[in-house]
Simulated scan of single mutants.
Amino acid sequence: MIYTDQIGREIEILDTPKRIISLVPSQTELLVDLGLEDSIVGVTKFCIHPKSLKEKTAIVGGTKKVKYEKIRTLNPDIILCNKEENTKEIVENLEKEYKVHVTDISILKDALEMISQYGNIFNVEKTATDLVNTIISQKEGFDNFIKDIPKKRVAYFIWRDPWMVTGSGTFIDHMLSVNGFDNAFGNKERYPEIPIDGLKSFKNIDLILLSSEPYPFAEKHVEEIKHMIPNIPVILVDGEYFSWYGSRLVNAFSYFKTLQLSIT
């Protein structure tokens, strides 16, 4: 069967892949929740969920740099990549030897399409459909909860030194909008660097969010920013619920509800 991945590449898959390498942490977690853990032969060092997976599965590098010789020894039937997480060079090198599927996730609809297509590719359609339906139901419940909550204008930090925030065209930006947040840097693309002092000139920021990933912001960083910008509240948020677009979404809306209640 011919599948078209999310960047428009056609992939012919004749038999259900039995040896899978995933180069995307959130997609690795999704595979496990689809019941495919025993088929995963390789992951990245950043594939941290479930914790037990790395103890029995080969590590083939990171998301930006992979060990090609290690991948060859694993003889995968398919390699799963993502447009943002992995480089174009990695995809081009791997597709010379293997079936490579690339996702491109900017909004929730993209994530649900990915889950459904994985269901078809790996012959777990019912599990994938149930997962999609659960996420949709959770999202609908959250939409009803949040509809009367006033919007807050936020800055969502993903990195320190240099200080970087989330801009437009990202899954995080989409999830901020799902939460009813107005992204203060939505007029900039992707992940712009900003001078931390520049925040002082923004008069209408209601809240600063420090993500737990990719930079591991902690309480000491909350105090650091509060010292520099004392007039804007600062809180830590679980970045996996804002940026992981696989089965992590099942629990995301419960987390968002708790978050909203804590800041309302």
Rank of each mutant, 00 (worst) to 15 (best):
Y68R: 05
L74I: 13
D77M: 05
D77G: 02
D77Q: 04
I78E: 02
I78Q: 02
I79R: 02
L80P: 00
N82I: 10
K83E: 12
T87Q: 05
T87F: 07
T87N: 05
E89H: 06
I90Y: 01
N93E: 14
N93Y: 02
K96P: 00
E97H: 06
E97L: 11
K99W: 00
K99H: 03
V100W: 00
H101A: 07
I105A: 00
S106Q: 14
I107T: 07
L108A: 01
L108Q: 03
L108D: 00
L108Y: 01
K109N: 12
A111F: 05
M114D: 08
Q117C: 13
Y118C: 13
Y118V: 13
G119V: 11
N120I: 09
F122T: 10
V124P: 04
E125G: 07
E125H: 09
K126D: 11
T127E: 15
A128I: 11
L131K: 10
V132F: 07
V132C: 15
V132E: 12
V132M: 13
T134N: 13
T134S: 14
I135T: 09
I136M: 15
K139P: 04
E140G: 08
G141V: 06
F142M: 10
F142E: 11
N144H: 12
F145W: 11
K147T: 08
D148Y: 10
D148G: 06
I149L: 13
K151A: 15
R153S: 13
F157D: 08
W159A: 13
P162F: 06
